[in-house]
Design a protein around this nucleic acid. Sequence first.
DNA 1: CATGAGCCCCTAACAGTGTTAGGGAGTGGC
DNA 2: GCCACTCCCTAACACTGTTAGGGGCTCATG
Lengths: 243, 243
Amino acid sequence: MPQNPIGTPATPATPGAPSTPGPDEAAPALTREALAQAALRVLERDGLAGLSMRKVAAEVGVKAASLYWHVRNKQELLDLLTDAVMGSAEPPPREGDWREQFHAYCWRYRRLLLDNRDAAKVVAGRLAPGPNLLGLMEDQLDRLRAAGFSDADAAMANYLLGAFVQGFVLQEQSPISASEVLGTSRRDIADAAGDLFRALPVETFPNLVDLADDLTEPTMDARFDFGVQRILDGLAALLPPAG
Amino acid sequence: MPQNPIGTPATPATPGAPSTPGPDEAAPALTREALAQAALRVLERDGLAGLSMRKVAAEVGVKAASLYWHVRNKQELLDLLTDAVMGSAEPPPREGDWREQFHAYCWRYRRLLLDNRDAAKVVAGRLAPGPNLLGLMEDQLDRLRAAGFSDADAAMANYLLGAFVQGFVLQEQSPISASEVLGTSRRDIADAAGDLFRALPVETFPNLVDLADDLTEPTMDARFDFGVQRILDGLAALLPPAG
DNA sequence: CATGAGCCCCTAACAGTGTTAGGGAGTGGC
DNA sequence: GCCACTCCCTAACACTGTTAGGGGCTCATG
């Protein structure tokens, strides 16, 4: 029965403990954390589509089948990877009003997803939340309650903001926007889209033709900020009139 | 050079034309539209992960390599599939104010993505927008301008609403929420998540423990409606004071 | 010292994937 | 008759996640 029992990895479940088991050992000792870091390197190099068990195994100097001793399957490795990404997130400073803080929160989260290659897809496909994600939720809920939101609204707002940022980046990185396949840059894409809209038959698509520029000009940053501002406006309307 | 040139499928590019080329032909004649319908059936049966070129080929009574005569690669087939899904969307009636209309729009779009298996993932991975999606954008832009939004705001709002619904459903169907892998129902998931939150150490996660019920109780429908209402509130604030 | 248990990695294999090269029928026009 | 075109085929390549079974290696126990 060569299977790792559920709750007994090489290092215990306490996430704050240092991953090196002893001070004298030079070998990295192949822990689950080391696997996650190796997977992170492969992800950065080859993307999610190129992340295979064999490559991660090679990254730690081992054959693919050996990974199944430390990890139940690929999904569990991706879960570890997700929390490793989340671990590099740091909440914004607790200055200014709640609007400024959550505006910064959304931007930082988006930056995190954009800076780590394919992070949005990995996070969207996760199976179980890790301790780092739980820490972020805890921090957000604390600020929302401090801002005066009810318990129910704070919980809903927390989910809404996470879902929005994550969904936006997923959309943003879908092939039509990112188009890493072709050699075309983002500027060319916008121009091509504009031409596409303008070339449509005016009688059936009058608005698309007319708004071609407005539809294609805005950068992703501008679209994201627009969305964040609308949501924050909507949330602000839930608060009792300030006094 | 057994490759289909770019703009010359078996049926011409006009999407409104009937797909049967002649009135007397009984054989379906394997058009790109027929391929898309076959792919849709495979998707419904086996999901996106189980949708392979070989299965789609078998669905139309052909071997896998033959598909590459009609389609450049799998991605192009998925693009056709995406627009086939979009073709079954119908905009809500043009009654009531813009808020009611777009509330209905968001709900219908979400229903569409939920009813067609893995539709959100397919749509999120699309490479090029099809005519059906363009028609929906056209309709939305027309209503937004009629409601009094500026050109720039209408374009931004159109993108925001699409990105939100799509991102929300993607999040909603990620394994942690949907969990079709295990036999556990959605109710059990919520209970398990509640237990997970309550079992956390109170000193480091006081809010998660305290709000365990608020975090796990709301249905996906409620969370979605919360988000839609906040965004519509935020958009309403952009309009000039009604008079 | 010998034995056994547990840990950790290995080879080999299975059933599948997207995609391409090359070939071979069938049809219509010159 | 012959050519070009359309459409489908077989065979193969280089992959993928995952499992079965085995073999050393270390440690505690008899």
